[in-house]
Computed example of a mutant assay.
Amino acid sequence: MDQVNAVREMLRITDQESNTALHEAAGCGNVEVVKALLEFEDPDFPYSANKKQETPFYIAARRRGSGRLLTLLLDKFKSTSHGGPHGRTALHAAAMAGDAEAIRVILKKKGNLTKERDEDGCTPLHYAAHLGGRFSVVEELLKRDVSAAYIGDKKKGMTPLLMAARQRNA
């Protein structure tokens, strides 16, 4: 048990930006390294955010094609911290990345994030509508909770539909 504790302690060492090895591996999208790092980690350990306010889960979500990586993290940890900068969640990050698969993976375990608002009052659907081009992302979010379409942001009261119309993506 002392060896396992020593390995866990080593895995939790941070750099000057407060990144652990898991933050870095998630940022590179390296599934095999993440899998190896998680092998010895305690499922109850709450990985904290780095200096940019990004958790490993948030970092993984902002990468396109991160579904497998997100599944690994969600399956390992009992409580996955999903926060990011400006009050955003991993679901916001996946919507900004335009990754419908990541959205499906996140919503499977964290379905309550669809109405989460960031500091500007924007939901993940706002970002999906604003960035446009990926209707599958909008569709996945609306399938989970259509009422998110009626939430206005804090600045102008813009709903996701109004944002999409303004971007000519409606």
Rank of each mutant, 00 (worst) to 15 (best):
D2R: 13
V7M: 04
R8N: 11
E9G: 15
M10D: 09
I13F: 07
T14Q: 12
T14R: 14
Q16A: 04
E17D: 02
S18W: 09
N19K: 05
N19S: 04
H23S: 02
A25W: 05
G27C: 07
V31I: 13
V34R: 09
K35L: 01
A36G: 01
L37E: 07
L38N: 10
L38S: 08
L38D: 08
P43M: 00
D44K: 06
P46D: 00
P46V: 02
Y47N: 06
A49C: 03
N50P: 02
K52C: 00
E54P: 02
I59A: 04
A60F: 05
A61G: 10
A61R: 12
R64P: 04
G67V: 03
L69P: 08
T71V: 06
T71A: 06
L74V: 11
D75E: 10
D75M: 05
S79G: 00
H82E: 02
G83C: 06
G83S: 09
G84Y: 13
H86S: 11
H86L: 09
H86I: 08
R88K: 15
R88L: 08
T89A: 05
A90Y: 10
A90K: 12
A94T: 13
A94P: 14
A97H: 12
A97P: 13
A97T: 14
A102H: 12
R104E: 14
V105E: 09
K108Q: 13
T114I: 10
T114W: 01
T114M: 03
K115S: 03
K115P: 00
K115Q: 12
R117C: 05
D118F: 04
E119M: 03
D120H: 08
G121K: 03
P124N: 02
H126N: 04
Y127N: 04
G132M: 01
R134V: 00
R134Q: 07
V138F: 04
R144K: 15
R144D: 06
G152T: 12
K155M: 07
K156S: 12
M158G: 03
T159N: 05
T159C: 03
L162P: 01
A164Y: 05
A165R: 14
R168H: 14
N169E: 10
A170G: 13
A170V: 15
